[in-house]
Computed example of a mutant assay.
Amino acid sequence: MSQEHLSEQVEHFFTNLWQDYISKTPSAPKVHQVLGQGAEIINDHVAFRTFNIAPVRLEKLAEIFENMGYFANGDYHFEAKKLRAKHYEHLNPDYPKIFISELLVEEFSEQAQRAIADMVASIDPREVEKTEFLYSGTHWQVSHEVYEMLLEESEYAAWMSAFGFCANHFTVSVNRLPGYEQLQDVNDKLKQEGFKLNTSGGEIKGSPEVYLEQSSTMADRIEVAFSDETALIPSCFYEFAKRYELPDGKMYTGFVAASADKIFESTNAKGE
């Protein structure tokens, strides 16, 4: 595939992904309006969630990105949340990094495992080969009761049951945001405009010492039609990242597990 065709494919993918994301995250265009004020906003990374069950294992979803010129560049483990993750980068630094996490399903109760296995069994493996699978949403219908049951064990599993495959969040690159030097300035502007920020582990997670600072809004709440009723639940959120140079002068491109652990809590249904 020519470089030009590959670029078109990547840009087409992110355009469609963004449209799907803002349909679940009505505050996202307002974030752009408040921070960008008409300037283009460069995204640092986009995050996806999945289960460690075939055919939707992390590495399987990653193949879609690898086919678009991405390469793996970091492994992460989240013991308390029972997750593992990897991040992927593109040779073109203007394209967002990709952060994919997967739930270690076998570490949950039999009841939760059964519910998740039933969801995954509804997926046609041929669909997972397609780029658009990454914004295809749910391939199942679960009850609000199942959502609540999963929520007791894992906010992540409950979120997946309601939203399936889509961007969990986009992330503004503060380094490339005109008019802002510090992440604190971004946070102050957002709060001034009425956005609620994730305060788990502090408003700013990380520090210049670990070469990455992150903050995020709390997820929007939207109505989701479950099989038995409609409920207002947290959907997706927007993150903000400021990166720092390593001692060798190169910009740090990885992630900090301790900070990402707190960012996951932006979709907490009980984090009011």
Rank of each mutant, 00 (worst) to 15 (best):
E148T: 13
S173G: 11
A162Q: 08
R126Y: 05
V142L: 06
A158D: 10
E152W: 05
F195D: 04
S136W: 07
K196S: 14
I123Y: 10
F133A: 06
A157I: 02
F165C: 07
L150C: 04
W140P: 03
S136H: 10
G164E: 13
F195R: 00
E152I: 13
Q184W: 09
S143R: 04
E148H: 12
G137D: 08
S173K: 12
L151D: 10
M160Q: 10
C166R: 15
G194Q: 11
Q182C: 03
K191S: 06
S200W: 12
V186P: 02
L190Q: 07
E129H: 13
H144I: 02
W140Y: 09
P125D: 06
A162Y: 08
W140F: 04
S122K: 11
M149N: 06
W140E: 01
S122E: 14
S161A: 10
T199W: 09
T131E: 11
Q184C: 06
K189F: 01
Y180L: 00
F163Q: 14
S200D: 14
E153Y: 03
E129V: 13
K196N: 10
G164T: 10
E152C: 08
E152V: 13
E129K: 15
W159V: 03
L134K: 12
D124K: 07
L150E: 00
H144M: 07
V172W: 06
N168W: 07
Q192C: 08
A167R: 12
T199H: 15
Q184V: 13
Y156S: 01
W140R: 00
V186T: 04
S200Y: 15
G179N: 02
G194E: 12
T131F: 07
E152R: 15
W140C: 09
S143V: 02
E148V: 09
